[in-house]
Amino acid sequence: MSKREKFEELGEKRMNEAIKKIRLIGNLSNKNNYDYTDEHVKAIINTLEMEIQLLKSKFKQEQIPEINFTFNNKKK
């Protein structure tokens, strides 16, 4: 398998997984099942946007530290 074929295979698989996970995050918007604040929503969206910027930087070969998400300073 060529490097391009491997990239395309893994790219499709990982993109479909990412799309599925983003849709699951979207399901959290159901107020019948969940209670959240505007700050929670901003935190989620800001983190996703920062991660997209990191992704863009990686393809441009720039060095930027990874981001971990939490609503507060709890250790997991």
Score class of each variant (00 low, 15 high):
M1F: 09
M1N: 08
S2K: 00
S2A: 05
K3Y: 07
R4I: 15
E5V: 10
E5R: 06
E5L: 10
K6L: 15
K6C: 12
K6I: 15
F7T: 07
E8A: 05
E8W: 02
E9V: 07
E9M: 07
L10D: 04
L10H: 10
L10M: 09
G11P: 00
E12D: 13
K13P: 01
K13H: 07
R14H: 09
M15L: 13
A18G: 02
A18M: 09
K20C: 03
K21S: 11
K21P: 00
K21D: 12
L24Q: 12
L24W: 10
L24G: 01
I25Y: 03
G26C: 08
L28E: 04
L28V: 14
S29W: 05
S29M: 13
N30C: 05
N30A: 05
N30Q: 06
N32F: 04
N32V: 01
N32S: 14
N33D: 13
N33S: 11
Y34H: 11
Y34L: 02
Y34W: 09
Y34N: 12
D35Y: 02
D35K: 10
Y36C: 05
Y36G: 04
T37D: 04
D38R: 11
E39H: 07
E39V: 06
H40Q: 09
V41K: 02
K42A: 15
I44N: 00
I45F: 07
I45Y: 06
L48F: 01
E49Q: 10
E49S: 13
M50I: 14
M50G: 03
M50V: 12
E51Q: 14
E51N: 08
E51V: 09
Q53R: 12
Q53K: 14
L54Q: 11
L54Y: 05
L55F: 15
L55N: 08
K56G: 00
S57E: 12
K58E: 08
K58L: 09
K60I: 02
Q61V: 06
E62L: 13
E62P: 04
Q63G: 01
I64A: 10
I64C: 01
P65K: 03
E66P: 06
E66A: 12
I67G: 02
I67P: 00
I67V: 13
N68L: 12
N68E: 12
F69H: 05
F69V: 03
F69Q: 06
T70L: 00
T70F: 02
N72I: 02
N72P: 00
N72Q: 04
N72L: 04
N73Q: 13
K74E: 15
K74R: 14
K74C: 08
K74A: 14
K75L: 08
K75M: 03
K75N: 11
K75P: 00
